[in-house]
Simulated scan of single mutants.
Amino acid sequence: MMKVMLFLALLSSNLMFSQEDLLKDIDTVKTNAESVQPAFKALQIVTGQSTKLTAKNEWYVVISHRFGDVSNGFKDFFGLDNASTKLGAIYGVTDKVSLNLSRETNQKTWEGGVKYKLLEQGNNFPVDVVGYNVMAVNTAFKKDIYPNLKFSDRLSYLSQALISRRFNDDFSLQLTPSFVHKNLYDPNIEDKNQFLTGLGGRYKISKRISINAEYFVNFDNHSFYKNPLSLGMDIETGGHVFQLLFTNSQLNSDIGYLTNALGDWGKGHIFFGFNLYRVF
């Protein structure tokens, strides 16, 4: 799988090499004696959020795609027949606060969120600390299945503390304690309130490419779902950031990714996908 990702990375870089590098400042911020460069280039490590924020008045358009289970082989053309797509927009209200809105085809979920920087890594503090809060609306729930369904039953919530440290120019690490609350859930397979902790990192292998990984442990002991594990690659090109990835969670939404992973790495049940960012 790593050979496939490296091939795609080299291909994308060659195709885009002639473009003007509109993201030449993506790995830098306004610095002084008290601050350092951001820990991550992209707004996500793989699917989970990173401590990077948009700049003031900056717009991002995000397209995320997860194909089906690659273990089905040619039957589903290695997952291409069963894809899930998320389309979203992110706006930087200030350099330290951003708002986002997205819609995913799988479960027809809308998510709105706010991301805000609380503390910054520098000479006087060892890490970046960013808060992230999301409210999701599952519009796939049907009243013929849930005859007493209320709008509030469609809602779920996510709160995260994103804590990262940039150790050097090549290596960054992030710890992500998380809490999820679902108004409508099946007590036979999951809990109403779920606590998770994630660990993710990025290692830069060239000027434009890094290898990323993340893993979340869900402390919901009787959960039917798996802990999400994802491996990815960031590719910086002219005006874009590509993220190629393999994961055991097909869902793109923040809450769905964390709590509804069905794939099993040990059995080869994984999903290939990508995230594409465009900055305006």
Rank of each mutant, 00 (worst) to 15 (best):
M5N: 07
M5K: 04
L6A: 07
L8R: 03
M16W: 09
M16D: 10
D21M: 01
L23K: 07
L23I: 10
D27R: 04
T31W: 01
T31Y: 01
N32E: 04
A33P: 02
V36I: 14
Q37Y: 12
P38V: 12
A39Q: 12
I45H: 01
I45F: 01
T47V: 12
K52F: 06
K52H: 09
K52I: 10
L53V: 11
K56E: 12
V61F: 15
R66A: 09
F67S: 11
F67E: 09
G68I: 10
D69Y: 09
V70A: 10
S71Y: 13
D76E: 13
N82H: 15
T85L: 12
T85F: 10
G88P: 08
A89S: 08
Y91M: 06
V93F: 06
K96C: 03
N100L: 03
L101E: 05
L101P: 01
L101D: 03
L101Y: 09
S102E: 15
Q107A: 09
W110E: 11
E111K: 00
G112P: 13
G113D: 06
G113Q: 03
K117C: 07
L119N: 04
G122A: 09
N123W: 05
N123G: 15
D128I: 11
G131C: 13
N133K: 02
V134E: 03
A136S: 14
N138S: 09
T139A: 11
F141C: 00
K143P: 13
Y146S: 07
Y146P: 11
L149H: 10
S152R: 06
S152P: 06
D153S: 08
R154C: 11
L155F: 11
S159G: 15
S164V: 15
R165V: 13
F171M: 10
F171P: 12
S172K: 00
L173S: 07
Q174V: 05
T176I: 14
P177L: 04
S178L: 01
N188T: 10
K192Q: 15
K192L: 06
K192V: 08
Q194F: 04
T197H: 01
L199T: 03
G200I: 11
R202F: 03
R202S: 15
K204Y: 04
K207C: 01
N212P: 03
A213Y: 14
Y215L: 00
V217K: 05
V217T: 06
F219Q: 02
D220P: 14
D220Q: 05
N221A: 14
N221P: 08
N221Y: 13
F224Q: 12
N227P: 12
P228W: 07
P228Y: 07
P228I: 11
L229D: 04
L229P: 02
S230C: 03
G232Y: 05
I235K: 05
I235Y: 06
E236R: 01
T237Y: 10
T237G: 03
L245Y: 11
F246W: 05
Q250R: 14
L251N: 13
D254S: 12
I255P: 01
I255N: 00
N260G: 00
N260Y: 00
N260C: 00
L262C: 00
G266D: 12
G268K: 00
H269G: 08
G273E: 08
N275H: 13
V279M: 00
V279T: 01
F280Y: 14
